[in-house]
């Protein structure tokens, strides 16, 4: 859902630009806690993979398509602050190098694809991790559900931005219905890709999955008490 230049008026674009700038500044501080010598290269690879995956549009019927956004995926793998930075780098490279997503719309795209998907996707993931059984096998399904919800959430926020600053007066109800409908279907694709990738990494190196760490700590405590007996 890369927003091109021209969809939103200047004040709205300036406002989303400010939101994006503040969020990236906060993320630069927050990501320090998530990144060390081992996770920094991992985060670089996650950003690179998200860029590559966003090139794959999958058909979702009736002549339309969608691709991975990757906010929930990146947040579960490398942490939410780092995920905001991952998606921001992806969107800057796409806008500057590939002319994918507008330049004046960069703040809007960072807000929608870099912030909303991360906040909603990771938020849902954390809630599910709390209520589901405390097992590593639950990490990928929880990430998938977070991913599923994150896509229509971004579509909803776009529609609200369009209601405030759309350059063409069209039926907002129709925009809302169509945006939520199609992006719920695209969200299913997002959930499948996110679930598979997270499951693969959890199966090979759970210690490298940010969202799996609390479960690993608990597992280890159990092991140690076992040894003590």
């Amino acid at each position: 859902m890369h927003v091109p230049d021209g969809f939103l008026d200047a004040p709205t674009s300036v406002a989303t630009g400010a939101v994006a700038a503040v969020a990236v500044a906060c993320a630069l501080r927050g990501a320090r806690r998530e990144l060390d010598d081992r996770t920094a290269p991992a985060a670089g690879l996650v950003a690179t993979f998200v860029f590559a995956a966003q090139m794959i549009n999958f058909p979702v019927g009736a002549g339309t398509s969608g691709h991975l956004m990757g906010g929930a995926l990146a947040a579960v793998l490398v942490g939410p602050w780092t995920a905001v930075l991952c998606l921001s780098v992806v969107l800057v490279v796409q806008a500057l190098l590939m002319a994918d997503g507008g330049i004046t719309a960069l703040g809007t795209n960072i807000t929608l694809i870099g912030i909303v998907t991360v906040v909603v996707g990771y938020g849902v993931f954390v809630v599910l991790r709390r209520v589901l059984p405390k097992r590593l096998g639950m990490v990928a399904p929880a990430a998938a559900v977070g991913a599923l919800v994150s896509v229509p959430a971004a579509a909803l926020v776009f529609t609200l931005l369009f209601a405030v600053g759309g350059n063409v007066p069209v039926d907002l109800g129709a925009v809302m219905t169509a945006m939520l409908g199609w992006h719920t279907v695209i969200g299913v694709g997002e959930a499948v890709v996110t679930g598979l990738v997270v499951a693969s990494v959890v199966a090979t190196r759970p210690d490298l999955v940010h969202g799996a760490r609390p479960l690993l700590v608990e597992r280890e405590l159990e092991l140690r008490t076992g040894v003590g007996r």
Partner: peptide
């Protein structure tokens, strides 16, 4: 990859604001 318009482009075509894209 599919070359169909993505979800946002498609909705913009259907609801009539695709022409505002620059």
């Amino acid at each position: 990859a599919s070359s169909h318009p993505d979800g946002l482009e498609y909705v913009a075509e259907q609801t009539g604001f695709i022409d505002s894209a620059e």
